[in-house]
Design a protein around this nucleic acid. Structure first.
Length: 236
DNA sequence: AACCGTTCCAACCGCAAACGG
DNA sequence: CCCGTTTGCGGTTGGAACGGT
């Protein structure tokens, strides 16, 4: 039995794999490693290529739009990571699974997992699942726009690091109403309906004042998730 | 600086599906 | 249809990185 290397890939191994695939394409994962000069299983090579070396992979953090898709797909499909990944070009099932376990689990809880007897059956379920309309619309990462889903509008602004702005009360013409739903750790933010002076729907909130009682997150994605779930639960 | 607990993700494993003779 | 091989999927985990003391 030949020696088979395990564990982290070295830059040299990566280069060998990339060079080989670029030259000869993928023809057979289980036979290819020895031709590529790699002491790895085909399985390991395949995983490394699919999850890390493929040139069409998207690197970096998930965008709000991508998070939104993951949430929506997870809610309809459950733990069918590869199916979810098909909706996110450049993201792998493994990456989405990791993202879910590290960022979303605490918000979404554990869904009843879809474990159909066969993949064909799973496909049928997938095809019959209607996409739920999105409750929120987040046109860009700097502002969260609830205008499409509510008669009132709410904006929260963040700094370039996606951290909450610690605003001063410089926008006295606009106030916020904070509703905390019992035991749910949910916060709904709305502009003040009495405010007739503001054609602008921008609301700067002194978020950290109520962070402790409502949300323990410290970045825009986590906080937005809280809002998203709140809006979803309350059918705004 | 050293230690320790936590977070995150790359990569593993086992199993099932798909393929091909 | 059967059976061996290959591919794909989802759960799990080792260890690096990070943060706090």
């Amino acid at each position: 039995m030949d020696y088979v290397k395990k564990g982290a890939w070295s830059p040299d191994e990566d280069q060998k794999l990339v060079d080989y695939i670029m030259k000869y394409r993928i023809w057979n994962w289980s036979h290819m490693p020895k031709f590529a000069g790699l002491s790895r299983t085909g399985k390991s090579c395949r995983l490394r290529w699919i999850n890390y070396l493929r040139p069409d992979l998207k690197k970096g953090p998930f965008s709000i739009e991508e998070v939104e898709i993951v949430i929506r797909m997870y809610q309809s499909l459950g733990n069918r990571w590869s199916a979810i990944a098909k909706e996110l070009p450049g993201r792998t099932d493994n990456e989405i699974k990791n993202f879910y376990h590290t960022h979303l689990k605490k918000h979404l809880g554990t869904k009843v997992e879809v474990k159909p007897k066969s993949r064909k059956k799973a496909k049928q379920i997938e095809m019959s699942t209607q996409k739920k309309p999105l409750i929120t619309n987040c046109p860009n990462i700097q502002s969260l726009d609830f205008t499409n889903s509510s008669s009132s509008s709410s904006y929260i602004t963040f700094d370039e690091n996606y951290d909450f702005l610690e605003t001063s009360n410089q926008h006295n013409d606009v106030t916020s109403i904070v509703n905390q739903v019992d035991d749910e750790n949910i916060v709904i933010l709305e502009s003040n309906p009495d405010d007739t002076t503001s054609s602008s729907s921008s609301v700067d909130l002194h978020i950290k004042d109520f962070m402790d009682v409502s949300v323990d997150s410290s970045n825009v994605v986590d906080f937005w998730l809280e809002l998203y779930m709140a809006a979803d639960n309350l059918k705004i």
